[in-house]
Design a binder for these strands. Sequence first.
DNA 1: TGATTTTAGTTACAAATGTAACTATAAGTA
DNA 2: TACTTATAGTTACATTTGTAACTAAAATCA
Lengths: 158, 158
Amino acid sequence: MNKNTQAPEDFELESFLPYRLSLLSNTLSEGIAVAYRKPFDLSVTEWRVIAVLGRFPGLTASEIRLRTAMDKVAISRAVKRLQARGLVERSEHREDRRRAHLKLSASRGRNLFRRIVPRALEYENRLLSKLAPEDQHLLLRLVSKLQQAADSLKSPEG
Amino acid sequence: MNKNTQAPEDFELESFLPYRLSLLSNTLSEGIAVAYRKPFDLSVTEWRVIAVLGRFPGLTASEIRLRTAMDKVAISRAVKRLQARGLVERSEHREDRRRAHLKLSASRGRNLFRRIVPRALEYENRLLSKLAPEDQHLLLRLVSKLQQAADSLKSPEG
DNA sequence: TGATTTTAGTTACAAATGTAACTATAAGTA
DNA sequence: TACTTATAGTTACATTTGTAACTAAAATCA
């Protein structure tokens, strides 16, 4: 399935799937940065927090973590900064004072969200439009499959 | 091609391609780390330098950069550490004293290379073996296509 | 040839990220 | 209830990574 045989001397990094996906992911990352980092001064983590809260207002930090596989420290930092910028608000949790519900602020936060999402989607669309429609579906299906496969290898005896 | 419409409120990060590829790439990264980071104390960049020099002995740092899209500072640091550990050797460039040819040391360096490559390939194989053979080909083809697409969007008016 | 610009690679500093320890609260248990 | 353990989230520190400035050598050019 790629040029690599089992002979070490023939190993080609360029054909190695983890390397290629890492490259691709970095390229896309740079690409969408144009949608949020440059114009709105947001880090990747901050954008993800905004994206998740835009869709699911009132989540706690832990719930964001469950949804995004981001680190809890990273989330804490992102929320702190977003709050300081008046983009995110926190409110008390009724029966647990350790937690806090988070949501985009009605004006600045949600406004930002509404401006970023179309840009992000536009980038994704421009990208996918370079593939034939059937390839677009295939790609997403295979990415899902591969993610499953990779996850299963993490647990003992995948 | 995914669940995202143009309505911001419906945006689902989980369906957003750049996000999914970033997740996938991170999962694979952790996965192959078992092949080189834990057992041999190598960073991703260090492993890449070793991989490239294993295949193409005598490259200069700039040539490594051209082949791998890694940053020149990152390469410089990786080479420095690998050299200190006796894994990489440098030799003078005949007609340009700014450059240096790099290669794995005959014993320790090449030895390491020969031990890592099978582990890396084994991980890749285990991963790909979870996909049907025709899906394996498809995946690699689509990754290539998408990389091309992403690259073309970087230059003015892709 | 001498002056200027480019290139290879390194060093120094700043910013981002990861890891561990910590605080506060809640839950479990005896 | 008192005591122990677990959880949510933060803070502090170490490590990694990125950016800019720098050094040395080579190439260009007048």
